[in-house]
Amino acid sequence: MKHEPSKREIAFTKFFLHTPAKTIYRSFADSISLQGHEKVLDFGSGYGTVAKWVAPKLTSGQLTCADISSIWQAECRNHLAKYKNITYFNDDIYHLDPSEQFDIIYAHFVLHDLPYPELKKVIPHLIKLLKIGGKLYIREPVSDRNKFHTICKLLLQQKLQVLQTNQHLIPLMGTSFDIHYQKRALNHFNAPHTPPKSGQTGPG
């Protein structure tokens, strides 16, 4: 589902990055475990609010900023022009070559905006793009509890191992959860996982 941002939305995002609230994006980027050589996918990169903090850490790695919005993709290119380790993918994520295997995929406040039928397709596809042993990092609000639990349920069906969950109170978004997953081989035992409840945090 393609969504193009309004001028107001773009202006607000740019303004947000010049306030103390920018730590929302930086804290999420800092939670991603990086050695510097990884191949990373930013799904729904928007203006590059998280990519801004991830790209400098990939000293010998590569970051792909993927967004179906042509407007956001153009804004992101301009915003992050100084980083030469970023490639841009402006198309439906299903058109990304499945041979592209990423060490890390992250999505920051993206999945909850997708309609239910789209979630059922996009989550398995993202996991196909993730290497065995690769990690998925998401941050999602719980304002729509049904949508949040659907996201967690669909991820559970992908046989991912939950590494960590953390709860945050995010300005304008309310209570949100960071959940870190790892893709394991199919024969690897995966402990049952239920969606975190408001007030629950994981290790760390």
Rank of each mutant, 00 (worst) to 15 (best):
R139K: 14
I104P: 01
K84Q: 15
V142A: 07
G134K: 07
W72C: 01
I86Q: 02
D113T: 14
A107T: 10
V142C: 12
G134N: 09
A107Q: 07
I132F: 00
S60P: 00
D103Q: 08
K120Y: 03
I93R: 05
H79V: 07
K128D: 10
D144C: 14
D103Y: 06
F109H: 04
N78S: 14
F148G: 13
P56S: 03
P98K: 13
R145F: 00
Q73C: 13
I71Y: 00
P56D: 09
E75D: 03
N146L: 12
V122R: 03
L114W: 11
L80E: 08
S60M: 14
E100Y: 02
S99G: 01
G61R: 07
T87H: 06
K128I: 06
L136V: 04
S99M: 06
N90W: 00
L119C: 07
A107W: 04
A55T: 11
I104V: 14
P124V: 14
A81S: 11
T87W: 01
L80K: 12
L119N: 04
P117H: 12
G134Y: 08
I127Q: 01
D103R: 02
G134E: 06
F89R: 02
H112W: 05
I138E: 03
P115D: 05
Q101K: 15
R145V: 14
L129Q: 02
Y137N: 04
G133E: 01
I104A: 01
V110I: 13
F148K: 13
S60W: 09
I105E: 02
K121R: 13
L58I: 11
D113V: 13
I132W: 01
N146Y: 08
S70N: 05
K121E: 10
T64K: 06
P115N: 05
L63F: 10
I93Y: 00
A66M: 11
F89L: 05
I123P: 00
Y116W: 08
V142N: 08
E100G: 01
